[in-house]
Design a protein around this nucleic acid. Structure first.
Length: 620
RNA sequence: GCCGACAUAGCUCAGCGGUAGAGCAGUUGUUUCGUAAACAACAGGUCCUCGGUUCGAAUCCGAGUGUCGGCUCCA
């Protein structure tokens, strides 16, 4: 299974609106009125798409020979792809922006025009726009396949710039709001590595300056919360070129790690999981049997020893079957829940690595549950309950996406149908909406993927629950003895709640901007002696806290109290415990929390009990 | 992997052909302080690596490595 799937919704990951199929559908449907409200276009999208046209116009002014790809509206803005004689520089972007401003100031109307297909094709061919011609040819062949009349070609023109486009657009360029070009990136034509790489310019545009400013501010905020930045600032982890894609965990990061591990172990113990551990280096014959060797080899680290081929495991699943099969299993033994904190290595392509969220080495809080088909619904319900319990510790609201049988699925369709019915019933019992993604299951399993949204509204894939109907049960020939003494196949559920600990921690850092909930803060309190004569008492208080397994540090530096507070604030420590003459005398502390609130004269015992209770409660 | 950018002190960054800089952090000393930065001194660097151009390279060129923004991939 694959927790590493990157499902974060990045600003650029929006659908290409000028997908030929969509274009074709729209045109086929007919009237110009329909065209204007075709699809899900909002006015904002129309404005963004119009901005893309204006940008293309400006680019053509600078590079008259530029060949145009596509230029859709996307979340927060737009982009346009160009084939250009040289790489763009920041200066080019500034020049393009200037050109765009000129076009907007001129307030030229957008004019829609439909011409016969052949005429349209000839027009773009004459202008040396092979990508546009390709789109048109595609439309033509689709029309032929569908046996419908070739639609006319629709174009939009403003000033001298004419583009193949289904619209809609705003009335004129003057309606385009404040914009800014953001970045240049490479993008394959039609997303295929085999096609030419174009230069994609991303821009953002908004109805008002305030909204543009707010968007830019949101981006700044996201940068401020970036886990890669905070990881350094909070001394949690680091990355080094000797092991790209693998984090080095510093003491505080490792402490956070252990807290999360301990917490989920508690849930697993309560729910009857049994923890196992399996080898990290495994012979290739296991992967041949599981099918990974044929389909996943490129992502595996392979090593040779004494003429044998091994690999670092990219997944845990196949190995758990060895434990399952180590003895005969009865229907009474099921469900058998085997959990494992599996250290996985996947040889992700170098360009895809990113902080903790896309790594080559990570640990999964994995489990494989072997069960009877009649136990499926209850088990799924229980697993959904686990997700709610765990995510509740962080105030995260899980979102469920149900992926059903893909076209290339293995296994008995009747079994699939039964499994999907049970999963659906379990999801429905939650009484909360969930997303359905038909045909998005794994080829061996219908699945529930769990996404969370962080404080900035970004979505991340974390947990997964996959009902394996084929891979482990069939390929590894797992059986149990049923009531009638027959050996029959169990079902297997692969599940992970955090998903990858690395990614989950990355998400937590960004969600909380580094200010972790008290229960899981690596340092829960810093004791701040005002003067050296208070250090002894500070040590004593810290000792009492440590005795209760609470995580505390004493700032023994000779800085002033103000400075110690500042440093603790920067480390986002939940509680600062100030000790001066008054406090030492009365065995109290002056508490300052990280939002600046103060409470003076709290007795040591009261504080210790309070912090202990907060830690046990695991509240966000 | 592909396109582009970037790589200077622990961190954030300036310098961009002529002996390597600042702020913060660190160390030491003075200070012992009441809720987000006391004062001073000191120390800290194969300017990512390798090669080239040049009288001279952190600076220009090439290759490599890593990181970042995207694309692609993602059992």
């Amino acid at each position: 299974m694959d927790q590493e799937r990157q499902s974060q919704t990045s600003p650029a990951a929006a659908p290409a609106i000028e997908d030929p199929a969509e274009f074709f559908d729209t045109v086929e449907r007919g009237s110009a009125d329909e065209l204007l409200d075709a699809g899900a276009h909002s006015d904002l999208d129309a404005m963004r798409h119009s901005a893309a046209h204006v940008m293309a116009e400006a680019v053509l002014e600078i590079f008259p020979g530029a060949q145009l790809g596509i230029g859709p509206a996307i979340q927060d803005g737009f982009y346009y792809d160009f084939l250009l004689p040289r790489p763009l520089t920041p200066d080019d972007l500034a020049a393009i922006e200037t050109g765009m401003s000129g076009s907007v100031a001129a307030d030229r109307p957008f004019v829609r025009k439909e011409v016969p297909f052949a005429e349209g094709r000839a027009f773009f061919a004459a202008r040396d726009q092979p990508f546009k011609v390709e789109i048109l040819d595609d439309l033509a062949s689709r029309a032929e396949e569908a046996g419908v009349v070739l639609p006319p070609t629709s174009t939009y023109q403003h000033g001298t710039f004419i583009d193949l486009c289904k619209g809609p657009h705003v009335a004129s360029t003057g309606r385009i709001g404040p914009f800014k070009l953001m970045t240049v990136a490479g993008a394959y034509w039609r997303g295929s590595e085999k096609r030419p790489m174009l230069q994609r310019i991303y821009g953002t545009v908004w109805p008002s300056q305030d909204e543009l400013d707010a968007y830019l501010h949101r981006r700044e905020e996201a940068k401020r919360r970036d886990h890669r930045r905070l990881g350094v600032q909070l001394d949690l982890f680091s990355f080094h070129d000797v092991s790209p894609g693998s984090a080095f965990w510093h003491p505080k990061g490792q402490r956070l790690w252990r807290i999360l591990e301990t917490a989920i172990r508690e849930v697993q113990d309560k729910r009857g999981y049994q923890e196992v551990a399996t080898p990290m280096i495994v012979h290739k014959k296991l992967w041949e049997q599981s099918g990974h060797w044929a389909n996943y080899q490129d992502s595996m680290f392979v090593l040779e020893s004494e003429g044998q081929t091994f690999s670092l495991k990219p997944m845990n699943c196949p190995e758990s079957t060895f434990i399952y099969k180590s003895r005969l299993r009865s229907y009474r033994d099921l469900p058998l829940r085997l959990s494992e904190f599996g250290r996985l290595h996947r040889n992700e392509r170098s360009g895809t690595l990113s902080g903790l969220t896309r790594v080559r080495h990570f640990v999964q809080d994995d489990a494989h549950i072997y069960l009877r088909p009649d136990q499926l619904q209850d088990e799924i319900k229980a697993l959904l309950g686990e997700v709610y319990e765990v995510y509740g510790w962080f105030g995260l609201e899980p979102r469920f996406t149900f992926g059903t049988r893909p076209d290339k699925a293995l296994g008995d369709p009747a079994l699939w149908e039964k499994a999907e019915t049970e999963i659906k019933a379990a999801l429905d019992s939650l009484g909360k909406p969930y997303r359905l993604k038909p045909k998005d299951g794994a080829f061996y399993a219908p699945k529930i993927d769990i996404q969370i949204e962080d404080a900035l509204g970004r979505e991340w894939q974390t947990a997964t629950i996959q009902v394996d109907l084929v891979m482990l049960p069939e390929r590894f020939d797992c059986t149990y003895i049923d009531e009638s003494g027959q050996a029959v196949r169990p079902m297997t559920i692969h599940r992970a709640i955090y998903g990858s600990l690395e990614r989950f921690i990355g998400v937590l850092i960004e969600h909380f901007a580094g200010a972790f909930p008290v229960w899981c803060s690596p340092v829960q309190a810093v004791v701040i002696p005002i003067a050296d004569r208070h250090i002894e008492a500070a040590n004593e208080l810290a000792g009492l806290l440590t005795d209760r397994k609470l995580r505390v540090e004493v700032d023994r530096s000779d800085g002033r109290m103000q400075n110690k507070i500042r440093l603790a604030q920067e480390q986002k420590v939940p509680y600062m415990l100030v000790l001066g003459d008054r406090e030492v005398e009365a065995r109290t502390v002056a508490i300052r929390n990280r939002s600046g609130e103060q409470e003076n004269g709290v007795s040591w015992d009261d504080f210790i009990e309070r912090l202990a209770a907060e830690t046990t409660a695991r509240r966000p």
